[in-house]
Design a binder for these strands. Structure first.
Lengths: 357, 357
DNA sequence: TTGTAAGCGTTATCAG
DNA sequence: CTGATAACGCTTACAA
């Protein structure tokens, strides 16, 4: 692998000149620059990033720390981060699936000196606090922190509002006994969605009880297994709000296997609006979270921080959620087959987030 | 951010000693080492990776280049890579969603000096050849290269065998007119699966024709739109083999909307066995590709290469595929509701790959 | 066992 | 405009 010295020697110039050519400096005569570029191309030279960042103190890379890559949602978040990042000619150092806070902190620590900033999605409040410590020397954007964080920029998903809107929607369809399958205990998205569900029931004067809150873990399997518990409830709920689409899918599968008709016997709603939701039978009524945009927003929030010479005041943003009404709750008429439309029709009600609580 | 000098000064030792402490060198008196560790901990010091890799010529990171992160399959590949990588205390530099060969080459070039090796999944043969060039100075593992590559290690998916096995299975169920929805032209997985489909028809003496090969692009939408074309065919196929699960899901959705019964009127099969396949109604008969293992294998293939002092002979591996028979082709009886089982039952027939062609 | 000092590949600061 | 040279933070002979 050739170094800048090889190019300099071969081109008959100093290393400083070669460096200038590769840094868009206009201080070089065009003829010389052209020659240097030719030699570099012939030698297949490219500046060594590590050496460069050692002196400039800029790595042109950002770190991304996620709780777990499982499923389409995170996949979309990463996609959003990845594309936005490359558009700005930055690189992504990825680290995910952290079992505990300690592993997560270790991963972030190991990134020091290799990244200019960090996008972190913490699974629980403890991790959030740990990451926050890094924000002193580091540009950090927290996704969905759950707790109030002043030290660094944050982007939150309007989980609470989305869940509450869904309950309102179900109530509007006449449902008075609405169960939920909640996500993992401690998980921030899960907790907020549960809070929104409860708030919705409360404001509408609908019955609320622990027995209506089935414990799930965001997997299809847990949704599938919830069915038994739900069907045992007296009176049987007429609607179930699942904490995410995967659990909704598992539940629908189990209900179908049990010979229960959707949405006539039981209505099922999800959260996230993953790509396949609209292709289920019945198509899933859910709350859309634009995971791609979440990733993109994080990058657009982070990069200015890394470029700034002076610390910038942290910025807090909320990604709105959108109620997407399809068939699984029985409100919309089944669609006619329309092979020409690119996307199947859905009724979409945009729900701007309210002022953060 | 403290440097090694700060620690050395604060601890009253030389930088060499601090360095030795952080490199597990036994050449340091335990009392001194303990003291240095304490000071480093207090200052929150951690070695700068860039500086370290500049001198050692090892970055402790690998690059990952993928065609596009879209969907659950790639998400699982990355997960496999990520976990296996961290287990070995390596980091992952990720870059995906490359529109063309040029963008891909640029991404790889920019990784030079920042990674010890590369895992690349190329979308087409042109990109494969471009990446191959890097293998001279770089440890490279190619995923599913499609073309024969001697220069670097490869891991291929048994796409051909899997597709052919599926055709055999469908034929065994009595289907004699089997259509397919193929993936994007030029895409290696798509081409191989199509080849397997054709080979299956040929060996069984079943009718094969271009009109039975509907063009798709691996998205649910394309599967949905294929329905119209398939239903127009004379005679109407009794089975459709979709090039991946997403297209199968789109097709199933369209057929359902059109009032066509599955599997009685038309059988549908997929490829990949993404997590939700078993929760569809009817549960999808498909070909399993263990994406997680694919990523894991790649890491286990790559790391020894990066550690080796002398170049190691490239190694070629094939990831087998497995026929997973569920309900969408009508062969298995609908499952009774069994809420206790963790996974829903499927009949699984393992199909070891044949000698590489 | 510890310290001194060279050097990894680059950019920044000066002179020229 | 161009070139010499000192950093950047670290590891590793070599010396003590």
């Amino acid at each position: 692998v050739p170094t800048i010295k090889d190019v300099a020697r071969e081109a008959g110039v100093s290393v400083a000149t070669v460096s200038r050519v590769f840094n868009q400096s206009t201080q070089v005569r065009e003829a010389v620059a052209e020659h240097v570029r030719a030699v570099a191309g012939r030698l297949d030279y490219w500046p060594n990033g590590a050496a460069r960042s050692l002196i400039t103190n800029r790595t042109h890379a950002i770190g991304v720390v996620l709780p777990d890559l499982y499923g389409e949602f995170f996949s979309e978040v990463i996609r959003g981060i990845d594309l936005a990042t490359r558009r700005e000619r930055f690189q992504v150092l990825l680290s995910s699936s952290h079992a505990d806070t300690e592993a997560l902190v270790g991963a972030v620590r190991a990134m020091r000196g290799r990244v200019d900033g960090l996008i972190a999605m913490t699974p629980d409040a403890e991790s959030t606090l740990a990451i926050r410590e890094f924000a002193r020397n580091f540009s950090v954007v927290l996704l969905d922190p759950g707790v109030m964080v002043r030290e660094c920029s944050t982007i939150s998903v309007a989980n609470f509002e989305g869940a509450r809107d869904m309950v309102r929607h179900l109530a509007g369809l006449g449902h008075r006994s609405i169960a939920t399958i909640r996500g993992p205990v401690g998980n921030i998205d899960a907790e907020e969605r549960l809070r929104g569900y409860r708030a919705g029931l409360l404001e509408l004067g609908l019955p609320s009880s622990p027995s209506l809150e089935i414990q799930g873990d965001f997997t299809e399997a847990s949704g599938y297994h919830s069915a038994a518990e739900i069907l045992r409830l007296e009176p049987r709920p007429t609607a179930v709000f699942a904490g995410n689409d995967y659990m909704a899918i598992g539940l629908m599968s189990a209900l179908h296997d049990g010979g229960i008709r959707l949405p006539e016997d039981v209505a099922v709603a999800g959260f996230d609006d993953i790509a396949i939701s609209q292709y289920l039978s019945p198509a899933l009524t859910t709350v859309r979270v634009d995971a791609y945009e979440l990733g993109e927003l994080a990058v657009h929030q982070l990069l200015p921080l890394t470029r700034a010479l002076k610390p910038i005041a942290p910025h807090h943003e909320v990604l709105p959620t959108t109620l997407v009404v399809r068939e699984s709750c029985g409100s919309s008429h089944p669609h006619p087959v329309d092979m020409r439309s690119r996307r199947r029709r859905s009724q979409v009600f945009s729900a701007p987030p309210e002022a953060a609580t």
